[in-house]
């Protein structure tokens, strides 16, 4: 079983911050200002404190925990992916059931030199397994290994 590329932790930090910046940071900042004028410093501090806590969890704590929880490995018969901090999810995809494999890179991922591997089976639901944050070359190699397997796809 492998861990993800450690660089992904920083990627997740950045992504977490971006997500916060799109909603919670402006809302809570505005809230702090408004509460400050309306109810005083203590109220403003509570809003600001929430913001600090949110940023702290989503940048310092969560990505590291998620990284530690994430494992994947190609075994004799299946691809195993473990993920999730609170809601844990382990998926086993038999290799001969893999229909196609994508590697994807968003702009941020490209900046980090990382790539996301997405595995599809005939189960219909978008993607059965997804491995974020692999080194580009490694992701391509893994993709090629996974698609090379042939067998009964069970459909």
């Amino acid at each position: 079983m492998h861990s993800l590329d450690p660089r992904v932790v920083n990627l997740w930090r950045l992504q977490g911050l971006t997500r916060l910046a799109s909603f919670w940071i402006p809302v809570l900042l505005a809230g702090a200002v408004w509460l400050g004028f309306r109810f005083g410093v203590a109220a403003a501090a509570s809003s600001a404190g929430t913001l600090v806590l949110l940023i702290g969890v989503s940048t310092l704590l969560w990505p590291a925990l998620a990284w530690r929880r994430f494992r994947y490995g190609v075994r004799a018969d299946d691809l195993l992916v473990e993920s999730g901090v609170l809601f844990r999810h382990t998926v086993s995809i038999p290799l001969d059931r893999i229909q196609h494999v994508d590697t994807r890179q968003g702009p941020m991922e490209r900046a980090f030199g990382l790539s996301r591997l997405v595995v599809y089976t005939a189960a219909g639901m978008s993607a059965d397994g997804s491995i974020p944050g692999l080194d580009e070359a490694q992701a391509d190699a893994l993709r090629d290994t996974l698609v090379r397997r042939r067998g009964d796809d069970g459909v």
Partner: peptide, 15 residues
Amino acid sequence: NKIQSVHLLSDPLLR
């Protein structure tokens, strides 16, 4: 022989 993938799930309450 029709199984496409197998998932093992847990959440804090289950754990």
